[in-house]
């Protein structure tokens, strides 16, 4: 059974620009998939539709059994609890510590304090930041901040982790460290969809790669098939 099913999806913005044309894609549970393509090819629009930041103009997107296009605005949170999202610019709250930033995701769900503590410490351990729990974001390096963002995205155990260029602001070495963290998360059963421009990472990890161009899927490489494609 596919965890994500995208059928004949088209997205046209109010400005008249069409970002996605008749897109079809199936993503299995536990898969690790890269979405690559040149700037403006529709990568970001595609993943924004997955977590319902954008609505498809036509077609159907099913995520974990939920028809994304039909979810009402006030019910979007139900989808968001199944999905973790990580961005290039980390999106951390500067006045909260690493621990508080991660705990924030559980506090809004109304979990008891003890449970929050256990879960937060567990994910901080997983991303290798257990000893920096009390640090504020501006005292952490870019890689560490991204780890906090990843920890926050996975702390409530989402089925899917969407990463929008998570290594975009990081040097190659730190980028690889982040990828190791993501691989570890994937091994625990979380489906990962990652948008990236970093071909070195794509080549090194040998995962499924979807190449987008002008809002269409031009190639869908199985794990290990992708060699070197110019973007």
């Amino acid at each position: 059974m596919d965890l994500i099913m995208i059928r004949d999806v088209k997205k046209t913005y109010k400005t008249g620009t069409t970002a996605i044309y008749d897109l079809n894609l199936n993503i299995k549970k536990g898969e690790f998939m890269f979405i690559i393509g040149s700037t403006g090819c529709g990568k970001s629009t595609l993943i924004k539709m997955l977590y319902r930041e954008e609505k498809p103009t036509s077609g159907k997107i099913i995520v974990g059994g939920l028809d994304v296009g039909k979810i009402r605005n006030r019910k979007v949170y139900k989808l968001r609890r199944k999905i973790g999202v990580v961005f290039q610019d980390y999106l951390l709250l500067p006045n909260l510590t690493a621990y508080e930033n991660v705990a924030y995701a559980l506090e809004v769900l109304g979990l008891p304090k003890e449970e929050i503590h256990t879960k937060v410490m567990k994910v901080l351990d997983l991303v290798g930041l257990k000893n920096k729990a009390k640090q504020y974001p501006n005292h952490l390096s870019g890689g560490e901040q991204q780890r906090v963002a990843i920890a926050r995205a996975i702390v409530n155990g989402p089925k899917i982790l969407i990463c929008d260029e998570p290594t975009g602001n990081l040097d190659p070495k730190t980028s690889m460290e982040i990828m190791e963290v993501l691989e570890a998360i994937n091994e625990l059963g979380t489906t990962i969809i990652m948008v990236t421009h970093d071909i070195d990472i794509v080549k090194k990890l040998k995962k499924r790669v979807v190449l987008l161009d002008s809002g269409r899927v031009v190639k869908d490489y199985k794990a290990g098939e992708y060699k070197n494609e110019k973007l």
Partner: peptide, 17 residues
């Protein structure tokens, strides 16, 4: 705005935001 964006991302319901 960022705070609200994060709240939405982590699955807070509109009323909780």
């Amino acid at each position: 705005r960022k705070e609200i964006e994060i709240m939405r991302l982590v699955g807070a319901s509109n009323i909780n935001i």
